[in-house]
């Protein structure tokens, strides 16, 4: 039974990683038609350097991701502090309101943003995408930082106050240092959410201003070359690295650690 189970799990992992491996391999294959046999080249990555459109899209993606990270982390962390440390009426409702951005299909949210932003004159473009990405990232930040706050016991702040700290000093001297890993994790997560976001960006992009995923989508639909594989591989690597650091900080992989 155990051997069978192991075999099955490895088959599942093979299914999950095979196409991704193919994608990356083809980025290093000389044939523009994805033909075998495999012939190693870095030609497609070199091509990238001269592709102004993709470079501009990459710059936009990174810029949006940085802005999203800063804004979502600060705004989300403030809300997380209130939601997990202060008792007030409507707290349950506010917690529930974090779910729609996570649970409603992005297609619906993206089209709704398009309608509203167009209607109110906010328009499309970089600022609109930042507006949208931050909204998608805030709930995740609140969840990650909130979990961190719940692990930081309230009696530590009380202890600091009994020793003469004002609530503000207690927060900065005791809670904030202990919260740092969660804050960094939340920031990384926000960055990854923004960098990988396609649907929202797709509806809010303009012909002149788009992001890397939108540009990749356009390329795929218009007919593509291994250049797309090359840039996709880079995007894949970036998000994997972010998530690996995130997991280290929050010990997500350690869910199974006990026993």
């Amino acid at each position: 039974m155990t051997a069978l189970g192991k075999l099955f799990l490895f088959a599942v992992l093979g299914f999950l990683y095979l196409p991704v491996a193919v994608l990356v391999a083809m980025a290093f294959n000389a044939s523009p038609l994805y033909a075998l046999p495999f012939e190693f080249t870095t030609h497609w990555f070199e091509e990238l350097a001269g592709n102004d459109k993709l470079l501009a899209a990459t710059r936009n993606s990174v810029l949006i991701a940085i802005l999203t990270t800063v804004l979502a982390t600060v705004i989300g962390a403030l809300a997380a502090i209130a939601l997990s440390r202060r008792r007030f009426r409507g707290r349950t409702l506010l917690r529930l309101l974090l779910l729609p951005p996570i649970a409603i299909p992005w297609l619906i949210i993206g089209t709704a943003m398009l309608v509203f932003f167009f209607w109110t004159g906010i328009g499309r473009g970089l600022h609109a995408m930042v507006l949208g990405h931050v909204a998608l990232a805030i709930p995740y930040v609140v969840l990650v930082v909130g979990a961190g706050l719940n692990n930081t016991r309230i009696d530590l702040e009380e202890a600091a106050m009994s020793l003469g700290s004002t609530p503000l000093h207690a927060f900065f001297a005791v809670t904030l240092p202990l919260l740092m890993p969660s804050l960094i994790a939340a920031a990384l997560f926000a960055f990854a959410v923004s960098l990988d976001q396609f649907v929202i960006s797709y509806f809010l992009a303009t012909p002149g201003v788009s992001t890397l995923p939108v540009e990749i989508y356009t390329s795929i639909r218009k007919g593509f070359t291994p250049e797309v594989n090359a840039v996709s591989s880079l995007l894949l690597a970036a998000s994997m690295i972010l998530i690996i650091i995130f997991a280290r900080l929050t010990k997500v992989g350690g869910v199974s650690g006990r026993r």
Binding site: R153, L156, E158, A159, M161
Partner: peptide, 28 residues
């Protein structure tokens, strides 16, 4: 307020600051 009452308190869970040394805890 608490921080001006000049009290000393020992908590059920001790509430020692985990990111500080024993010395720093006591000196707080």
């Amino acid at each position: 307020p608490v921080w001006k009452r000049a009290i000393g308190m020992v908590f059920q869970s001790y509430a020692l600051f985990p990111h500080m040394s024993v010395d720093d805890n006591v000196a707080f």
